[in-house]
Amino acid sequence: MVLKKLKTYGELVMFSHTLFSLPFALISMLWAANGLPDIATFFWILVALVAGRNGANALNRWVDRDIDKKNPRTADRHLPKGIVKGSEVLWIVGICYALFVLAAYQLNTLCFLLSPVALALFTVYSYTKRVTWACHLVLGIACAGAPVGAWLAVTGQFALTPLMLGAVVLLWVAGFDIIYGTQDIDFDRNNAIYSIPARFGLKNSLLIAKAFHFMMWILLVALFFVMELGIFYLMGVVLSGALLVIEHRLVDPDNKRKMNVASYHINQIVSMLLLVSTVVDLIL
């Protein structure tokens, strides 16, 4: 019974999608420590990343519960169908947010002091689609905190590298979130939901997403020079660029399977590919 409930909660927050920002945070951590940091730091970074991401996603599900119920594409989610109660979701949010603050406290003073800023971003994002089409960028900024936070956890100070890596995540996430949002253009327009696809239309939105991903790729190349990295990292960057091209060629808002591959599956491979190439580069 307990395992079944945990499985349901994992599906609610889409736990498997933790793979999106996690690899970039680990890359930042590895660069900051020039390898693996001490076990305690590594552990609390993982706790912060998992707790923050899943708490934010649970809150997003709760905030969007009425919108999801109206949208045929999302009407079968856990809250609209009554599989979980709203109070349960809020408990998940509270526990995850508390764990995030605890992890920040365990890491260092700067991380602890900045933890309310991160939680504010997690929380504000869920409401942005009601007020601005720039909601995709707000999501990107919230996710960009992962590599910046991981660097701060190791070094306790800001630097150019984590900010560049944060910009990579911002552009990457905003780009594929725009792609995902093209499925709901008509629904968003009819229900006063703000998004780049609803504001600028399908063709222009896909051009914006391509521009974001191109800028992301240029930043990854720039990091090769800034960090004086090796050939294995560069190979990962080249392959990730090829995957992003495939992603954009797959986009078809009328085909849910293709959209899931383009918006989610390929991007999970992109982030893991970059992490693996970074690790190999450090080792060899």
Rank of each mutant, 00 (worst) to 15 (best):
S277V: 11
W151P: 00
I92F: 12
G241P: 05
N260E: 10
F24R: 15
G175K: 02
L206H: 02
P37E: 13
V261Y: 03
Y180W: 14
I266R: 01
I39V: 13
Y105E: 02
S21F: 05
L99K: 07
A48D: 02
V124L: 15
L275Q: 11
G156L: 03
I196R: 06
L239F: 14
V168D: 04
L99E: 05
T132N: 10
P23G: 13
F176V: 06
L171M: 04
K256W: 01
Y127H: 08
V270P: 08
D254I: 02
F212W: 08
T74A: 04
A58C: 03
W217S: 08
S28W: 09
V270Q: 03
G236A: 07
F214H: 14
G241L: 03
V169C: 04
I67F: 06
S271W: 01
A150T: 01
A198K: 08
L244W: 01
I185V: 07
I27C: 08
A32W: 03
Y233N: 01
L244V: 07
H248D: 00
V84F: 07
L219P: 12
G145R: 00
H248E: 03
P253D: 00
L19F: 15
K258Y: 11
A209D: 10
L275G: 07
P162D: 00
A118I: 08
L229I: 02
A120P: 05
L121M: 15
L275C: 08
L243Y: 10
Q268I: 06
L163E: 05
A242F: 13
A150S: 13
A209L: 09
D177S: 11
A146K: 00
F100N: 00
I208D: 05
T109N: 12
F20I: 15
S277W: 06
V138I: 12
F43Q: 02
V251N: 03
S28F: 07
K256E: 11
R77V: 12
S28R: 06
Y180S: 11
I39C: 05
T278S: 09
L243C: 08
F15Q: 12
H17V: 10
L163N: 05
F224D: 07
G145H: 00
A51S: 11
V93K: 02
T8A: 10
D177V: 15
I83W: 13
K4G: 06
S87Q: 12
H248W: 04
Q183C: 10
A150R: 01
L275H: 07
L99I: 06
M227F: 06
I218M: 13
P116C: 15
K69M: 11
A209S: 10
V226Y: 08
V131G: 04
L171G: 00
L160N: 04
L102C: 04
L12P: 09
T109W: 09
I196G: 12
W31L: 14
A146N: 00
A40P: 02
P162E: 03
A134M: 09
I95Y: 13
G86N: 14
I45K: 01
M227D: 14
T278E: 11
V63R: 05
V169H: 01
S205D: 05
P147W: 00
G82V: 04
L114H: 15
Y194G: 12
G140Q: 03
T41F: 04
V63L: 03
F20L: 12
T8V: 13
N71P: 02
L107Q: 03
P80I: 06
Q268L: 09
L6A: 11
V13C: 02
